[in-house]
Amino acid sequence: MQRAHRANRPVQRVVRALTGAAVLPVMLVAAGCSSDAEPKSDAKQSASSGKASAKPSPTLEPAAYKELPKACDALGRKTLDDLVPKGLKSEKAGRTDDAGTRASCTWNSLDDNGVKGSQYRWLSVSMLRFDSDTVRGAASEQAKKQYETSIEDARSTADAKKVAGKPVKSVGDEATLVTYDLKKKEGLFKQQTVVVLVENVVVTVDYNGAGLAGEDAPSAKKLSERAVDAAKEAVGKVTAANDAEDADGSSASPSASPSKSTAKS
């Protein structure tokens, strides 16, 4: 029996060897299938990536105006003498973290006539410039939205009375004058807001006046005329600032030409 059992051992070894040999090709075949599948997947992914990278990015119209003038230089001395006769020394530039895209300046004037009362004036010039951006869109479109928002903000001022608005001709590409009365404890204030769109820039002139201590309120018509003249002058300064840049060698966008001529008219 022991001899028979020993005789069977070589057979068992052969069977084990054959069994192992049979398993090995199966593993190799499985491994081969796996390695063949991966390159195909990578090829599909590469093809997909190639298609994605080949998709052209949207082309945006470049910003027509690339500079802003200093807001406190937007109006000349003669204009300031007319609007805020006692306020030249009150000039105050607004804070900004980017003077190339936003700027503002304010002045105030108090003409004291003693027992006859006094006349108060307050003036503000602000400018916002937009650059084309793939997320926010073309510069001119952003400026148009801001122009409309600024008009609505002026029209919806809290406690405003007799609110009115009308388009203003020959100032920038578009301009709107918003007027209203605002009653305060000091007196009745006549507010004039002129919002102008010129290419990718929005210029806003806020001008108000009041008769204090018994003085009559100023004429809203005269205040409006002066505010419009100031807005036209400020727009001219924006155009001039960019004309100066063009003269230094920078190329201007062709679309800027019509508005520049309009702004100067």
Rank of each mutant, 00 (worst) to 15 (best):
H5W: 07
R6E: 15
N8A: 12
N8D: 11
Q12H: 10
V15C: 09
R16S: 08
A17Y: 03
L18H: 09
T19N: 10
A22S: 13
P25Q: 04
V26S: 12
V26K: 03
K40F: 06
S41E: 13
Q45P: 00
S53V: 07
A54L: 04
K55V: 15
K55W: 03
S57Q: 14
T59W: 00
L60C: 04
E61K: 14
P62C: 13
P62S: 07
A63P: 07
A64C: 14
E67L: 11
L68Q: 05
P69Y: 10
C72V: 01
A74N: 09
G76N: 15
R77L: 09
T79I: 02
P85D: 07
P85F: 04
K86E: 15
K89F: 05
S90K: 12
S90T: 15
K92G: 04
A93Y: 00
G94W: 07
G94H: 08
G94N: 08
R95P: 00
T96H: 05
T96E: 05
D97L: 14
D98Q: 03
A99L: 13
A103I: 01
A103G: 10
T106G: 07
N108M: 00
N108E: 10
S109D: 04
Y120G: 01
W122E: 12
W122L: 06
L123M: 11
S124L: 10
S132R: 04
T134W: 02
A138F: 02
A139G: 06
S140V: 15
E141R: 09
A143M: 08
S150N: 10
I151E: 09
E152H: 13
S156H: 11
D159N: 11
V163N: 01
V163S: 05
V163A: 06
G165L: 01
P167H: 08
P167R: 04
P167G: 05
K169C: 00
D173A: 12
L177Y: 12
D181L: 14
K185P: 00
K185S: 15
F189K: 11
K190L: 11
Q191C: 04
Q192K: 12
Q192C: 13
V194F: 09
V195Q: 06
V201R: 02
V203H: 00
D206Q: 08
A210F: 03
A210I: 05
G214I: 06
D216V: 13
A217Y: 00
P218V: 11
S219V: 08
K222Y: 03
S224L: 05
R226P: 00
R226Y: 00
V228C: 03
D229N: 08
K232Q: 13
K232M: 06
G236F: 02
K237W: 01
V238K: 01
A241L: 04
D246R: 15
D248V: 01
D248C: 00
S250Y: 09
A252L: 15
A252H: 10
P254I: 07
P258Y: 07
S259R: 05
S261G: 03
S261T: 14
S261M: 14
S261D: 15
T262H: 09
T262V: 01
A263S: 12
